[in-house]
């Protein structure tokens, strides 16, 4: 598996403490999440705010430390690694693109500086070739002429251009994995497709494994091969994206699909009926399905026993007692 999936995630968990000394509780931002990121494929991580998807991405980028679980890079666990040399090696292979195109670039530094730094830190190319490599990277992401663009400051570029700079920066180290955290949600509609097309091109040409974190199902369908649906810190459904979207198992996935605007139908044609509630973050959750308060299919067992991910229609799996009940023998976790 390590050849085809440079990054493997096993039971990743992140808890944040809240409250004070008298009344301490924990927010289970990410709970027991497992998946692989295969080379040359784009995996969409879909969920609403509070579902934990950004936290997962940041843990993979080693910006947060996991509370439990393991992140396996080329077979070995990196979550405990502290030595600068090893951390640096990881960072040279796993890169991240952020949501806010302006916030992810230092306002007082030029484009050249942003793309150059990773080249220098990781000594990707000898000094003499740095300038040329910077230009090459800018050309790859479609920013031409590179000499002019390299001298500009972030505020002189449009949102789409800034995001391309961020992508160039991520590509500088020739990573195997790129984590894209909502890279287009703050861009104008007409330029989003350009960025998505760029991601597809990079996946095909360079075999990079992408994790595409988003709340936009339609965009995910356009770029991704596989999908992971998160709710309240857990993966509730996963599988090949076409299969999951055409025939969703989990009630939350169905709710999402019904809620996304689809011009092919009029608003009143599909009203969603769900009991009022919102994707709240789980604070010290008790056993039972976390979606039970909003689920139209909930039965008795749902409030008592936490469902497990079951491959109801391999490789599509869901975490639901009703639509993907655990067989009598031990259930096989997906992927």
């Amino acid at each position: 598996m390590t050849r085809t999936a440079p990054l493997e995630v096993r039971s990743l968990t992140k808890r944040f403490p809240i409250g004070n000394a008298f009344h301490r509780a924990h927010v289970h931002a990410v709970d027991d999440v497992s998946f692989d990121l295969p080379s040359g494929r784009i995996t969409a991580l879909v969920g609403e705010s509070g579902s934990g998807k950004s936290t997962v991405a940041r843990m993979l980028a080693r910006l947060y430390e996991p509370s439990a679980g393991a992140v396996l890079f080329e077979g070995s666990d990196v979550s405990g690694v502290r030595r600068r040399k090893h951390v640096l090696h990881y960072r040279s292979q796993v890169q991240m693109i952020f949501q806010d195109p302006f916030g992810s670039l230092n306002p007082v530094k030029t484009v050249r500086h942003h793309v150059e730094r990773p080249l220098r830190i990781h000594r990707v190319v000898p000094r003499a070739q740095i300038e040329e490599r910077v230009h090459e990277l800018l050309r790859t992401v479609g920013l031409v002429p590179p000499e002019d663009v390299a001298a500009k400051y972030p505020h002189e570029l449009s949102g789409g251009q800034r995001q391309r700079v961020a992508i160039a920066r991520a590509l500088a180290v020739e990573p195997k994995v790129v984590l894209a955290d909502e890279p287009i949600s703050m861009l104008d509609v007409s330029i989003r497709i350009g960025i998505l097309n760029l991601m597809l091109k990079l996946k095909e040409e360079r075999g990079i494994a992408f994790l595409y974190v988003t709340h936009d199902l339609a965009g995910a369908r356009y770029v991704a091969d596989d999908i992971l649906v998160m709710y309240a810190g857990q993966i509730v459904e996963c599988g090949p994206i076409e299969q999951v979207l055409s025939d969703p198992l989990h009630p939350y996935t169905r709710l999402l699909l019904a809620a996304v605007p689809d011009p092919a139908r009029k608003l009143h044609a599909q009203r969603i009926e769900s009991r009022k509630g919102h994707a709240s973050v789980a604070v010290d959750p008790s056993a039972g399905c976390r979606f039970v308060a909003r689920c139209p299919l909930a039965i008795d067992i749902c409030s008592r026993v936490t469902p497990r991910l079951v491959e109801e229609r391999p490789p599509q799996a869901a975490r639901c007692h009703v639509t993907a009940p655990a067989p009598e023998r031990a259930a096989v976790p997906a992927h």
Binding site: S158, G160, D188, V189, S190, I191, R192, I193, G194, L196, N197, L217, A218, G219, R221, Y222, L245, S246, L257, V260, D262, P263, A264
Partner: peptide, 23 residues
């Protein structure tokens, strides 16, 4: 061009182009 920037949720998937340039 705007309509061409919204990927469909169902039906066939084709490469979209969006609108080049900026306002």
């Amino acid at each position: 061009g705007l309509l061409n920037s919204f990927p469909p949720l169902s039906g066939p998937l084709t490469r979209l182009t969006g609108i080049p340039g900026s306002p």
